[in-house]
Write a protein that binds this DNA or RNA. Structure first.
Lengths: 146, 146
DNA sequence: CCCATGTCAGTATTACTGACATTG
DNA sequence: CCAATGTCAGTAGTACTGACATGG
């Protein structure tokens, strides 16, 4: 065989974990009036103020078109502001955006904490590092432009 | 703050890993004429013959309605057969389904192997276990029906 | 000139919720 | 009767591809 064994597959466990996490996050965020993509965008801007749309898209793992339309609603809601009209517009949270993010951000942190409750700090860091190692390993053969 | 720190967040690393994996899988499977959900369904049936639609749905982390419509195309394509008309219909791959799955299954195994190339067998198992621990931890408070 | 970006459309896939008959 | 299932619709949210102007 040598094929995939679901009961031993890291990929399958990965999918299970993410699905469960997404479900928990969406359920929680719904109560805060935010979708998961919206939250991700706001959180990204909170921690990395001044990102452009394209940078934000890369950080959220979506296309810049998808981020563009997501941002449109956030801009319209007054949670985010755009500065300049040049090539890379600086985006950042408004005061209202910061206020609206506070609760959800704490709630999300609590969920992540609950998810990791069974792991020691050492295990958590190992887990995070291994996940990054996995992502890096898959990105290699992409060989972006040139 | 005590809020989410993207650069230290396991959840963020999890999302990055899954997104990258999905991208690699979809790119590969496209060449085999299968979508990722279709592949998942076939692989599940290959390893657990006789599953019902609802069981399949749980195994693939989607609703039974979503699985139902996915199965419709696979049944129409003759890759899967349904037996009985009772409450829990037994589903299984046809000979054609098995044949069509072979290549994709090997390709997916290769991708998973590439993803894990930087990790020792011990690390891989640790990673898988930790992911399952995380998923379990989040599932607790759901408390399904009483 | 070139590449990345911002932006406008259109499309498509995918899954979801709701509803209801059926089965065990 | 009840819980789970199969199934039919309709809906929605999300992202994707294509295209094109702009800017550095």
């Amino acid at each position: 065989m040598g094929q995939v064994d679901l009961d031993r597959s890291v990929g399958y466990a990965l999918k299970r974990a993410v699905t469960t996490l997404h479900g928990a996050l969406e359920a929680e965020l719904r109560g805060h009036g935010l979708s998961l993509p919206q939250y991700a965008c706001l959180e990204l801007l909170a921690q990395r103020p001044g990102l452009s749309n394209a940078e934000l898209a890369r950080g959220a793992f979506v296309t810049r078109q998808a981020m563009h339309q997501l941002l449109a609603s956030l801009l319209a809601s007054g949670l985010v502001t755009s500065q300049g009209t040049g090539r890379a517009r600086r985006l950042q949270l408004t005061a209202e955006g910061q206020r609206r993010l506070r609760g959800p951000s704490l709630a999300v942190a609590a969920i992540e904490e609950r998810m990791l409750a069974g792991l020691s700090p050492h295990q958590r860091e190992n887990l995070r590092q291994d996940l990054i190692t996995c992502a890096e390993a898959l990105r290699e053969p992409e060989r972006r432009h040139a």
